[in-house]
Amino acid sequence: MAPNDTAAATAMTAGAARRAKNHRADLFDVRTPTPYEIMRQRAKHHSGFLIGMSIILVVGICAIFAPWIAPYNPFDQDISRRLINPIWGPNSTWDNPLGTDAFGRDYLSRLIWGARVSMVIGIVAPAAAAVIGTTIGMTGGYFGGRADAFVMYLINTKLALPGLVVTLSLVAVFGGSMFVLICVLTFLFWDRYAIVLRTVTQQIRSQDFITAAEAIGCSRTRIILGEILPNVLNQMIVILTLEMALAILIEATLSFLGLGIQPPTPTWGNLIAEGRNFMFFKPYLVTIPGLALLVLAIAINMMGDGVRDITAPEGRN
């Protein structure tokens, strides 16, 4: 009864109208938080995510500012100061808090510089793999039919190959430069994105809003990039963090086997490989860089679990 309502409203005093408006505001005008705000709230209270992020941040800062943070040049050898114990061992000095290696190089400085290789490879290789794997997976999942059969064939072939052996051979053939390592690790990592995103794309594809987009004549590019991609981003990020930890560990493994970035460049894998010969009487040469790897990988995994909880808590199990 609109006319009556209008009449009633005009009949009210200004004060009553204001009170009525305030009352309504209390009851109904509560702004619903945007998804972004909800996620920020969840992130603030997720201790695992926060701890993981802080550790990654610290390692990242060490990597970026290594020349300014490291107390010594990591390449400077001093034969008179070789194999000094870290600060908790006997005959140690604060000049070299983590001791020195067999060439008398400061171990703390080498550790800080070593973070560079790990961080660059840990970020670039999984990101490149994400682009390739997502493209392949979404193509198969969206188009189906022959395209999907071809995608499945690519994935099956990749899965059948012994990944580590192929990686080792490629690095042995092309040399252990940063560029080669990133290319080879990209090749090693694309399949998990492809497998997951193929399935997810298939599920989303059959939903009504995609049919609606098709019905109003959106182009395929528009549907894939504008409608599907935003809905699979969180899956992508979760895999990204898993692969990030894996890439760092595999880079260290390659260095350890002598096929990665070559000495004297400090990488955590190289540090362990060089320390291995002295492991039995100077265990810290192996334990320290290994712990650095372990802590970084745990931090990345914690961040990954956190991202999943924050973006899609219903998928927690």
């Binding site: 560990l249 260290a252 291995r276 492991m279 290994g290 372990l294 990988a297 990345i300 995994n301």
Partner: peptide, 15 residues
Amino acid sequence: AVGGQAVPNFWFGLM
């Protein structure tokens, strides 16, 4: 689970 995923295999062997 997180620890097992994060530990560098070759380093764990050495330890």
